Simulated assay, not measured.
Amino acid sequence: MSLNTAIPTLEGDAQFGAYVARSKGPLKGAIVVIQEIFGVNDGIRQKCDKFAAEGYIAIAPDLFWRLKPGIELDPDVEPEFHQALDWMGKFNQDAGIRDIQATINHVRAAEGTSKVGCVGYCLGGRLAFMTAARTDIDASVGYYGVGIDGLLEEKQAIANPVLLHIPTKDGFVGPETQAAMHAGLDDHPKVTLYDYEGLNHGFATEIGNRRDEAAASLADGRTSAFFARHLG
């Protein structure tokens, strides 16, 4: 099942879809899983299922819904990759953050959990950083977030823990951007950065050609420990 729940906007004038996976055991908290530019596809749903297996409610909102509800694309199919880039160019990130806040509000009210974290990938990694600065999220994780160097003026607003995974050979986040992220965030008391030497963008995807098994396992283990510490 692709999208299996509906979330009201902050304004209450519309609803958007989301995929939810629920823990079958004692509940540790909730995690908002923020999509790549490829929509809430199989890989993002698998991320949710993994977090549910660890004891969380995991929810992935369809952030492209204002453009076209239910977009699902495969990064390994070249025409679909280019479609995704086109959707990203049209996407209103500020509206996306409002939808993430709506998702946080929804999961707290509907699922009865107060602690909510978020984790995002690619575009979602950027949005996870914005979520840390602009919402009341309890903990945030970003994988290979793009353009975070342009958001550093927002770092003073970060009140809760943030973890960023940075592959050093990221074709979308070059050495100068990585250096700026370290210069701007290494001394931030709430932010932790991990570098992954020689790895490229998308190394922790669940499926497809981009995945690096060893690095993905390392990064995901760090993410699991981070959420256990800050959402438990």
Rank of each mutant, 00 (worst) to 15 (best):
residue 186 D to N: 12
residue 118 C to T: 13
residue 18 A to E: 12
residue 192 T to E: 15
residue 105 N to M: 00
residue 87 W to H: 15
residue 75 P to Y: 03
residue 32 V to Y: 08
residue 229 R to I: 00
residue 133 A to L: 12
residue 226 F to H: 09
residue 103 T to W: 04
residue 136 D to G: 07
residue 115 K to I: 09
residue 85 L to K: 15
residue 204 A to I: 00
residue 195 D to F: 06
residue 102 A to W: 07
residue 132 A to K: 04
residue 75 P to I: 00
residue 226 F to L: 02
residue 34 I to W: 12
residue 25 G to V: 03
residue 137 I to L: 07
residue 93 Q to D: 03
residue 93 Q to W: 07
residue 20 V to L: 15
residue 173 V to L: 10
residue 88 M to N: 05
residue 31 I to C: 00
residue 197 E to P: 12
residue 31 I to Q: 13
residue 29 G to Q: 08
residue 79 P to Y: 08
residue 72 E to Q: 15
residue 141 V to F: 02
residue 154 E to G: 03
residue 204 A to Y: 07
residue 30 A to W: 12
residue 115 K to Y: 13
residue 47 K to R: 10
residue 64 F to R: 06
residue 41 N to S: 02
residue 66 R to M: 07
residue 6 A to L: 15
residue 208 G to S: 03
residue 155 K to E: 03
residue 148 I to H: 05
residue 231 L to M: 12
residue 141 V to I: 11
residue 19 Y to D: 00
residue 145 G to P: 10
residue 38 F to T: 09
residue 158 I to T: 14
residue 143 Y to W: 06
residue 30 A to K: 13
residue 111 E to T: 00
residue 193 L to A: 03
residue 180 A to C: 06
residue 215 A to V: 02
residue 161 P to M: 04
residue 224 S to L: 08
residue 76 D to F: 08
residue 91 F to N: 06
residue 209 N to W: 01
residue 146 V to A: 10
residue 195 D to I: 00
residue 9 T to I: 04
residue 84 A to I: 02
residue 155 K to D: 02
residue 133 A to R: 13
residue 97 I to Y: 08
residue 131 T to Y: 06
residue 196 Y to Q: 00
residue 3 L to G: 01
residue 131 T to D: 11
residue 206 E to T: 09
residue 206 E to N: 05
residue 38 F to L: 01
residue 99 D to S: 08
residue 152 L to N: 08
residue 28 K to T: 07
residue 3 L to V: 03
residue 139 A to I: 00
residue 135 T to F: 11
residue 132 A to S: 13
residue 157 A to W: 07
residue 4 N to E: 08
residue 195 D to P: 04
residue 158 I to G: 11
residue 116 V to P: 07
residue 207 I to Y: 12
residue 166 I to P: 04
residue 127 L to I: 05
residue 45 R to I: 11
residue 62 D to Y: 14
residue 87 W to C: 00
residue 189 P to Y: 09
residue 185 L to V: 12
residue 17 G to R: 08
residue 1 M to V: 15
residue 214 A to R: 13
residue 85 L to M: 13
residue 216 A to M: 08
residue 124 G to K: 01
residue 230 H to C: 03
residue 94 D to A: 15
residue 146 V to G: 02
residue 131 T to N: 01
residue 157 A to L: 10
residue 29 G to R: 12
residue 41 N to C: 10
residue 228 A to W: 05
residue 169 K to F: 05
residue 216 A to F: 10
residue 137 I to M: 09
residue 103 T to I: 07
residue 168 T to I: 08
residue 17 G to A: 10
residue 44 I to Y: 05
residue 208 G to H: 09
residue 8 P to V: 09
residue 16 F to L: 05
residue 206 E to W: 10
residue 12 G to M: 06
residue 158 I to D: 09
residue 22 R to F: 04
residue 170 D to E: 12
residue 44 I to C: 05
residue 6 A to N: 10
residue 64 F to W: 13
residue 151 L to S: 04
residue 178 Q to L: 11
residue 19 Y to A: 05
residue 200 N to P: 01
residue 64 F to G: 03
residue 154 E to N: 14
residue 213 E to P: 10
residue 189 P to H: 05
residue 213 E to M: 06
residue 98 R to K: 14
residue 18 A to P: 14
residue 194 Y to H: 13
